[in-house]
Amino acid sequence: AGGEGPPEPGEAAGAAGGSRDALSLEEILRLYNQPINEEQAWAVCYQCCGSLRAAGAGRQPRRVRSAAQIRVWRDGQVTLAPAAGDAGEPPASAGKLGYSHCTETEVIESLGIIIYKALDYGLKENEERELSPPLEQLIDHMANTVEADGSNDEGYEAADEGLEDEEDEKRKISAIRSYRDVMKLCAAHLSTESEAPNHYQAVCRALFAETMELHTFLSKIK
């Protein structure tokens, strides 16, 4: 994972060459050689937070260090695999993202960063992708970068700052503290919130299926 050269799906699910049940987000990015689209970003966020939430308190939360850890499964589920080295103590050189044990908000922060990087994949350092405001807000809040720009951070949380119509009300984002908060925001992105589980699962299922199709095609060409 994270190496150079042509994409070789097979490592992530331990089924090299055979039928695959999961692809890592990194494999998907490398196969397409382009970033994920916005709908896929919403879907991966929703599905990943769903599986983290389902895993519950029984599992020690871990930061997401790379897209290689995010697994998109054939059935549209998205799970988080431990990073290499996560089994033991974090290495002294692990840095800010390297601590294994952390809070739920820290996992969300790291997930937001990795999702942004997947949206930014392949872009040059001096280029920036124009994201839709709702997705940018989601990532801003997940990654906890809202305060960093020195702008009016309070606007999202304050209910009395001129948010008038329903759309504004819907977009109003309070601080994200849990996987459930992220899922609620992702659901609010849809016209019918109750469709979120089926919709986002279908988006991830399609992402897996289309990537596998591309992989098969590229393998034949090879």
């Binding site: 397409y32 920036e128 992708r129 124009e130």
Partner: peptide, 24 residues
């Protein structure tokens, strides 16, 4: 279908890319 369509703008110091970069 399946193709990402997005606009690219110059990176801005106060943009989300810069803020994310500061985090990593």
């Amino acid at each position: 279908k399946g193709k990402s369509l997005y606009k690219i703008k110059p990176r801005h110091d106060s943009g989300i890319k810069a803020k994310i970069s500061m985090k990593t």
